[in-house]
Design a binder for these strands. Sequence first.
DNA 1: AGGGGATAGTCATACGTATGACTTAGGGAT
DNA 2: ATCCCTAAGTCATACGTATGACTATCCCCT
Lengths: 340, 340
Amino acid sequence: MPSPPPPAGRPTSKDVARHAGVSQSTVSLVLAGKWRGRVSPATVETVRDAAAALGYRPNTSARSLRLGRTRTVMLVVPVLTSPFFGAVHSGAARVAAERDFGVVVYPTLDGADLAPNAFSPAAIDGVLASSMAAEPLDVLRSAGPGTGHLPLVMLDSEPGHGVPTVNHDVAEGMRTIAEYVVGLGHRRVARLRSTVRTWTFEARDAAFRAALGPAEVVAEACAPLTLDGGREAALSLLAAPARPTALLCDDDLQAAGAYKAARALGLRVPDDLSVTGFDDMRYARVVEPELTTFRLPAVELGARGMTALLDLLDTGDAGPDVVLPGELVIRGSTAPPTPA
Amino acid sequence: MPSPPPPAGRPTSKDVARHAGVSQSTVSLVLAGKWRGRVSPATVETVRDAAAALGYRPNTSARSLRLGRTRTVMLVVPVLTSPFFGAVHSGAARVAAERDFGVVVYPTLDGADLAPNAFSPAAIDGVLASSMAAEPLDVLRSAGPGTGHLPLVMLDSEPGHGVPTVNHDVAEGMRTIAEYVVGLGHRRVARLRSTVRTWTFEARDAAFRAALGPAEVVAEACAPLTLDGGREAALSLLAAPARPTALLCDDDLQAAGAYKAARALGLRVPDDLSVTGFDDMRYARVVEPELTTFRLPAVELGARGMTALLDLLDTGDAGPDVVLPGELVIRGSTAPPTPA
DNA sequence: AGGGGATAGTCATACGTATGACTTAGGGAT
DNA sequence: ATCCCTAAGTCATACGTATGACTATCCCCT
C-alpha cells in the first residue's frame, strides 16, 4: 500500500454508507438530491440520518476533482486596507456566501504586478477583478484552463474589451458635483486629481469640463489619494495667483488633506474655500465641516459584480454591463463664494 | 465510460509525461523537487521544459485530495470594511502568499453568529480568527476533521484556552496613554469605552485605574465604535457637573465623534479638552487637531498570527503566545489643562 | 565471471466523490 | 405461464496527483 496520509478520521461517504447499510453511490445520490426515481423515501431518510449522526461533510477536494469546478472565486483588489475595497469585498462576499461559493482575495499590493502564478494555491472557477489596467487583464484572461479563458468580470474598468463589467457612474458623479459647485456661484475652481490614471481619467475630465459653464479652471494638479498627498498638492493649488474659491477632489481622503492645506494658509472652509470629495467614505463625516461629496455604492458594486460572475459561471451569461448610479451628498464643506 | 466532464483541455501531468517521453510518476517527482537519486539531471531538464512548454500547472483539487491538505486557511474577522481588520488581513495575506497558502475570508457580518456550515465551500487546513467570544470559538474547534480539532490561532483573544494567541498589548496601551494624560496635569478625566465587551474589557480598565494616580474619573460611558456613537456619548459625558479636562476613548473613530461633541458645546481641543484615541487608524490624522493615540500594529498582528498558524500546520507547534507592543503617538489633541 | 550496489526509472494504487451502465425484484398485463 | 416495465439499488470507473515498491541497467570490484 502506498502510504495512506494520516488515518484521517473524518467520515467519508463510504462511512455513511456502511452506517446506513447502503452503497456509497446511494449516499452520494441522496446527498446530492438526485435520488428521485432511484432511491426510496425510506432509504433517503436512513441515509440522511446516518450522515447527520456521523457529522459527515463531503470532501471539497474530491468533489472539485470529480466535477472539475471548485465553487471558489478570486477577488482581485489593489489593497484591502482601503475602506473602499473593503466595502467592495463585503458586498461580494455576501453574495458569494449566499450562493455557496468561497472567495479568496488576491491583493495586488500597492500596484505590484499580478504574478502569473498568482493562482497556484487556490483552485479558482473565476475572477472578479477591480480597477485594472490592460496588461494584468491579459494575465488573467490567459490564466484559464488550456488555451481558453478564465471566466472574468471586471469592476470599475473600461467596458468593451469582451469582458463583462460593473461600473460606478464616475463621470455622472463628476458632472453632478461640478454643476452643483458652479451653481453655488463659484467661478474660479481648482481641481485635484488622482495620480493613478484609470480608464475614467479622460471621461471624468470631460464630464467636469462640460459642467463648468461660466466657471473657469484656475489650477489643476495630480496627487496620490492620501492625506499628505492631498495636503501638499492643495498647498500649491491655493497659492495660484487667481486664488480658487472652490476645490474639487477625486477622493475624500485627498479632500481631507486639502482641509489641512487651507488651514495652514488661514483659509476657512467653506467661507473662504469650498471643498468637495468623492466616494463618501467614512472620512467624509469625520472632518469638520463634514464633506460634500458624491457617494459611490461600493458594497453594491461588489455585490453586483459577484452576481454577474456567478451567473456567468452558472449560465454562461453574465448579463448586460451594469452602471451603478451614485448620489450627491451635500454637507457643510460647500457654500456660495464670499463676494470679494 | 462514466462521462468525463467537459473535455477539460487543461494539460495534466500525464500530458507533460507524454510530451517529455517519460512516465507520469517521473513528472510528479521532478516537479515536486524530490528527484534526487531517482531522476537524472538531463531528464529533469526535459521534464521541466515540457511542463513549461505546455504551461502545466498542477490541479489543486487532485493534489489536495491526495495529500489531505489544501494549503488554504480561513481568516475570520468581524467585518472587512473596518480599516483595522483590513490591515489585519493585509498582513495575514502577505505571509500566506509568501508561504504559498491561499486565504479565504469569512466575515461574521456585524456580529452575526458563525454558521456551523461556514466551511462548506472551501476546504480549509486551519483558521485564523479574530476577536471572538467563547461560543464561536467552540464552533471553530469542533469543526475539525472527525472528532479532532481544526488547527486554530486566535487574534486579540484571551490566552489560556488551549489555543495559541497573538495579541496587541492593549492594557499596556491604556496604561501608557493614561499616564501621559495624567502627567500633563489633568485631574478630572472622563472615559469613553466600547460597548463590545471583549476579553480585555477588565484588563483595560484595571490598567487605566492603576495609571490614574492623583487623578479621578469624573464620568464614564460606553458607546459603539462609530462616529455618531462617540459624539452622543461624549455629549453626555461633557455635561457632567465637574466637567472633565480630558477624555480618553477606546477608538479613534469614537474620538472623532468626541470632537464633534466638543465643538457642539463650544469647547476647543486641546485648550478646553484633551482627547485621546486608540489604534492609530487613518482617522487619527484626518481630524483637526490630529489625534494623540496609541498605535496598534494591526498589519503585524495579522502577519504574526498567520505565521503562527502556518507554523502550527507545518510543525505542529505554533510557538509561544505573542503580545505585540504598541506605541504612544503624541499629536495635537492633548495639552496641559488650562488653569481654571 | 559473478555479485553487489548505485542509478534511473516505471508500476500500481489510493485519496473521496459523482454518475452512466448494469442488476435484481416485484407486479401487472396478456 | 410469459413478458415487459418500473422501482430501487449496486457496480465500476474516472477525475489528477503523489509515492512506496518494484525493475532494469550499467559499472566496478574481487
